[in-house]
Amino acid sequence: MDMRARLLRATAARPHVLPVSTPGGTAARLAAERYLRLHDLPLALTPADADLLLVTGPDRSALRPAVDRLWQHLPAPRARAHAPTADAVPGALARCRADLADHTHNGDREGGGRDSGRGHEGHGGGMEMPAGLPMAGTGEDRDGLSLDQLHVSLGPLLADWPSGLTVRMTLQGDVVQEAEPSRQQLGDDGPAPLWAEPWARAAGGEPVTVEEAARRRAAAHLDSLGRLLAVAGWAGAAATARRLRDELLDGTPGAALRPEVRRFARRVGRSRTLYWLTRGMGVLDGERARAAGVSGPAARAGGDVPARYRTWLEDIVGDVDRLGETAPLDPAEEGPRGGGVGERWPSAALVRVLPELLEGAELAAARLIVASLDPDPDELAAAPQEVGIHG
């Protein structure tokens, strides 16, 4: 067996998976992340590194072109699967891996790999561009100088990104001059977003305990931290956050979780590297946050990216300490992204403040700022047009 054949067989045995999620697909995404972790399948961060493309969540016609663009940039041999629900994940991945093994066994290289003449949109899914880059124009920078302008987009499908959200930016150098967010609107015709579901049930008169809400909120914050830490390049801590998230959702008792949750919070909260990497980014003081309708951790943090992730950590520790409380949940109590009585889509306000936080920031900071707010894509998809996000 030659070296090429050995490499292909190794790929089929342990393929790199590029998972992307659609709005409304949080439960399916969580199931996929758990499956990949338990089966030790490596994640791909870009199409160029991927062997399998796994789409989780409902089929969204508006996102099909973006999914197809990702698929075009996976090198052969490759396979793709769609798991619309959590229960569909194992079967979809099994079929996908079988397809990849067949391609590998048959020596199907689909033309020998990626078409080198194709424009590279990357993971964001934008317009076709020569040499993989958009053309630059000119415009005045923030100091009145005339510099080249570059128009780029982040989203709607991107690793560790709110699915369905697109942020179009105008850059001069590596500084964001303008930022305009938009999102896919699906309408309020589906189930309550997973993370806010206990509050929706309580508001409807169903019995929900404080423990159930605390468990869901802590899991949501750990999910957000997993994305932020992954974007920051701290893969080990991101994996720990996601494992603790899954243990909370599995119903692991508070006494068993408490020691490791506290160790994790101390480790991340005291990390000098993470602090120095993110300090001063995306400053949002409490007064400005409340004026924009922002509530929850982002408003209480009243500061930069470190202030927000440390607030998440404090809330996680506090919620794990509340596991076991059987008192009924007050529907007005703050959910994972904030909210309260009469506020069903607190994530919409998180997107509304993005332009002022991104403008003037370096491009490298943009994804960290978005991850530190982490608007819920399920809430954004359900939010009506009048919430003030461009559709």
Rank of each mutant, 00 (worst) to 15 (best):
R216L: 02
L147F: 11
P156H: 05
E334S: 08
E379P: 13
A200L: 15
V210A: 05
R4C: 05
P355K: 12
L228A: 04
R300C: 04
R9I: 05
G204S: 15
A361M: 09
G342T: 09
S116I: 09
L157P: 15
L63E: 03
L244Y: 15
E180D: 14
R262Y: 14
L363Q: 02
A237E: 13
G25C: 04
R4P: 01
P42D: 07
A5D: 03
A292K: 13
A255P: 05
A12K: 01
D59W: 12
E334K: 11
R242S: 00
L7Q: 10
V20S: 05
D285H: 14
H151G: 13
D87K: 15
R266W: 14
T56C: 02
A203F: 11
R60C: 05
G187A: 09
D315R: 15
T46W: 01
I369A: 08
T56I: 01
Q185C: 12
A301D: 02
A256K: 14
G293P: 13
A32C: 03
Q185R: 12
G125T: 02
R308V: 01
G107H: 01
W276H: 14
A235K: 04
V317M: 03
A81I: 04
A232V: 14
A203L: 09
Q385A: 14
L257A: 07
A79S: 01
